[in-house]
């Protein structure tokens, strides 16, 4: 087995223990969507689009006192090493749900009764941490759609690899590591909106990892905010 972390605490992709992979985020990347964002996070390439608030279909799903929030997390067949069958896997169904539940607390759904807000996440290429990258992009897309939100939502995963707590696992670390702890939060309100974990962690491990995840969310938030700023102050290319 490859050595996941060397003696100098450097990880297989050359990062320090608490270092994130490069992240690039851009809003307003699709013409037809009300809001959109594209994120590259490590080797993740993810497109998020938001439609709405719009008329709710089917009508029987309509909510009398708030907007119906819909979300689909979908991986393209070519996004992974093998071909992923195009129909939704159980993993995608679960992620669609937890991504929706991570974003919902931020949105003023009660402002738009009887309507629907649709969030689409398309993973074009996947790497470790695609759910937190998706949440970060989708939240930017919601803001880009002009949907009122109490706060933005950002995510970051922390894990335990070769006995050490590390930030932002890549694919290999995710597969061969011991623990994955994806977290999403509303950074200004300091509220956790997504929390999952798998792999054994002592009380101390968890507390250290959870704290690191919240700190890293803050870092991702600064990037996300910057992306929105840049999206709304277009630079003239020929200048």
């Amino acid at each position: 087995m490859t050595e996941l972390i060397n003696a100098r605490n450097i990880r297989i992709d050359g990062r320090k223990l608490d270092e994130l992979r490069p992240i690039k985020l851009k809003v307003g990347v699709l013409n037809n969507a009300d809001g959109s964002a594209y994120i590259e996070w490590g080797r993740n390439k993810i497109m998020a689009a938001v439609y709405g608030p719009k008329e709710c279909h089917p009508k029987h799903k309509m909510l009398a006192d708030r907007a119906l929030l819909k979300c689909r997390y979908h991986m393209t067949p070519f996004s992974v090493d093998d071909r992923k069958p195009p129909q939704p896997s159980r993993r995608e169904v679960e992620l669609s749900k937890i991504i929706r539940e991570a974003l919902a607390p931020a949105i003023l759904l009660e402002e738009f009764p009887r309507t629907a807000i649709e969030i689409y996440v398309e993973v074009l290429q996947s790497d470790g941490g695609s759910r937190v990258a998706s949440i970060t992009a989708a939240s930017a897309a919601l803001a880009d759609a002009g949907i009122p939100m109490r706060d933005l939502v950002v995510g970051c995963a922390v894990g335990k690899v070769a006995g050490k707590i590390v930030a932002d696992l890549n694919d290999t670390e995710d597969k061969e590591g011991d623990v994955d702890l994806p977290v999403a939060c509303m950074p200004n309100l300091n509220l956790v909106t997504l929390l999952q974990s798998d792999g054994a962690m002592s009380k101390e491990d968890f507390e250290e990892a959870f704290k690191m995840a919240l700190e890293k969310c803050r870092y991702v938030y600064d990037l996300q905010r910057q992306a929105l700023l840049e999206g709304y102050t277009p630079q003239k290319e020929d200048e």
Binding site: L108, A143, D144, G146, I147, R150, Y232
Partner: peptide, 23 residues
């Protein structure tokens, strides 16, 4: 606090955000 992407404007004791996106 702001609810939308926009330009904040403070006039007297009133705060508004001029939205930059949305229907």
């Amino acid at each position: 606090y702001a609810l939308k992407v926009g330009l904040s404007e403070i006039e007297g004791d009133k705060v508004r955000i001029i939205p930059l996106a949305g229907r």
